[in-house]
Simulated assay, not measured.
Amino acid sequence: MKKNGFIIGLLILLGNATQIQAQEERNHGIIWSSLHGLEYQVKAGFNIGGASPLPLPKEIRSIDGYSPNICFAIEGNVTKWFGYNNKWGVIVGARLETKGMETTATVKNYSMEIIGDGGEHLAGYWTGKVKTKFKASYLSVPILATYQLSPRVKLNAGPYFSYLTSGDFNGYVSDGYLRKGDPTGTKAEFKDGDTAPYDFSKDLQKFQWGVQAGTEWKAFKHLNVYANLAWGLNDIFKEEFKTITFAMYPIYLNVGFGYAF
């Protein structure tokens, strides 16, 4: 029993020593980073927004419903401060995020390609209701300039670059009719309650880029609250995709919390 107690005590002492050493190494790393003007942070938040044409084209007569869905964002970044007073700096990060929305619209002569009951694709111009579901996952890299406005408030702005890891853009049409080929083509009517699906997921663009700007407020010593607006500058669809005749830009507000080391 004494021998077992000695071994247990020794293991506890070794565990405590390892923990103390790890803490000392962590503190040393934080001090070294601080002396070299480096600051590390992890963030978690939500994206709220949608992919939209600017301005709304004449084909979209009204937006009848909108839901932002639940879209998460997790980010790690490092800030390099310059100068003796650390007023200006550069932020480089890596962000895993989802962007999405659901909308219902009333349209007229809206370019569309629906999927028939037999799996055939029918292209033409749709007049009626369109339900759209968009959801995409991205790996994003923001490169931002940051300014220390006060001890508690920072501003940041700059470009971001995103790579699509998975994405869906689909939905259905209802309560209307399709003119095959062109706006004066053969009319295929849909009775009340009839729907036809469409799916443009394979036509989503792999690379996205845009600008973002935001602010960050230090709530406690290590806890920050932030808000950023990210505005995409290229179409979410590939250049060769012509079914939707206007560009759609992802515009999202990202809000959440950050932990600064």
Rank of each mutant, 00 (worst) to 15 (best):
E216L: 08
A136G: 06
K87S: 11
L139I: 15
E120W: 06
K108T: 10
A227K: 02
F241Y: 08
T184Y: 13
D194P: 01
V225Y: 00
H28T: 10
G29S: 14
A44G: 13
N47M: 07
F261P: 00
G185A: 07
K202C: 03
E25D: 12
Y163T: 14
T186H: 10
P183N: 12
I91V: 14
H222Q: 14
K43V: 04
I244P: 00
I63Y: 15
L13V: 15
A123H: 06
P142Y: 02
V107R: 00
K135T: 07
W88R: 08
L10N: 12
S137W: 05
E189Q: 14
I244T: 05
Q21Y: 15
R95T: 13
D199A: 07
I63N: 09
F6R: 14
H36R: 14
V130S: 02
P250R: 00
V78R: 01
L229F: 14
Y84D: 09
T245A: 06
Q23M: 11
Y110E: 08
G89C: 05
G76D: 11
G185D: 08
L54P: 01
W81E: 02
K3V: 11
G176M: 06
T195V: 09
I60A: 10
N156Y: 00
I236Y: 03
P142I: 03
T245R: 10
T186V: 08
N85A: 13
T184S: 15
K87R: 15
F220M: 13
R179I: 02
L13N: 10
Y40M: 12
G5W: 02
T106K: 05
L38S: 14
E239A: 10
